[in-house]
Simulated assay, not measured.
Amino acid sequence: MVQRLPDTSLTFALASGGREHFGWGVDRHMTADIFDALNQNTRATGQWGKKPPKFPEWPRPKVKKKAAPKGKSKRRVSVADIYKQFSARR
């Protein structure tokens, strides 16, 4: 992996799983986790009638799990693979 790139860069996002990870750095993940923790704390300590309400989680990019090829070890993402993703038109 290319080192010293900011965690919000497009190259880092493509290596992490796709364009939907673009802009999602450590700070954004921590903010979403804090939001969800506050909602869970509110749900746990609130005085609700019979059943506490469901609070929606902060929307996050979905991690796509790739099926590992049978009989082969997991291949690293090469610079050529990242270039192909950059040059792909959508």
Rank of each mutant, 00 (worst) to 15 (best):
Met1His: 12
Pro6Arg: 02
Pro6Phe: 00
Ser9Glu: 05
Leu10Val: 13
Thr11Pro: 01
Phe12Gly: 00
Ala13Pro: 02
Ala13Phe: 01
Leu14Ala: 02
Leu14Ile: 06
Ala15Tyr: 07
Ser16Thr: 10
Gly17Glu: 06
Glu20Gly: 04
His21Arg: 14
Gly23Asp: 07
Gly23Tyr: 01
Trp24Phe: 01
Gly25Met: 06
Gly25Glu: 05
Val26Gln: 04
Asp27Ala: 05
Arg28Trp: 00
Met30Leu: 11
Met30Lys: 13
Thr31Lys: 09
Thr31Asp: 10
Ala32Pro: 02
Phe35Ser: 12
Leu38Cys: 12
Leu38His: 05
Asn39Pro: 01
Asn39Trp: 10
Asn41Arg: 09
Thr42Cys: 09
Thr42Met: 12
Ala44Asn: 10
Gly46Val: 06
Gly46Glu: 09
Gln47Trp: 05
Gln47Glu: 12
Trp48Ala: 06
Trp48Pro: 05
Gly49Gln: 13
Gly49Arg: 12
Lys50Tyr: 12
Lys51Val: 14
Pro52Lys: 08
Pro53Ser: 06
Pro53Asp: 05
Lys54Arg: 14
Phe55Ile: 08
Pro56Tyr: 07
Glu57Val: 04
Trp58Pro: 01
Trp58Leu: 01
Pro59Phe: 07
Arg60Asn: 10
Arg60Lys: 14
Val63Arg: 15
Val63Ala: 13
Lys65Trp: 10
Lys65Ser: 08
Ala68Met: 11
Gly71Asp: 12
Gly71Ala: 11
Gly71Ile: 12
Lys72Phe: 09
Lys74Trp: 09
Val77Asn: 10
Val77Arg: 12
Val77Trp: 11
Ala80Gly: 07
Ala80Asn: 10
Asp81Glu: 15
Asp81Gly: 06
Lys84Ala: 14
Phe86Thr: 02
Phe86Cys: 03
Ser87Pro: 04
Arg89Trp: 00
Arg89Gly: 05
Arg89Val: 11
Arg90Pro: 04
Arg90Gln: 10
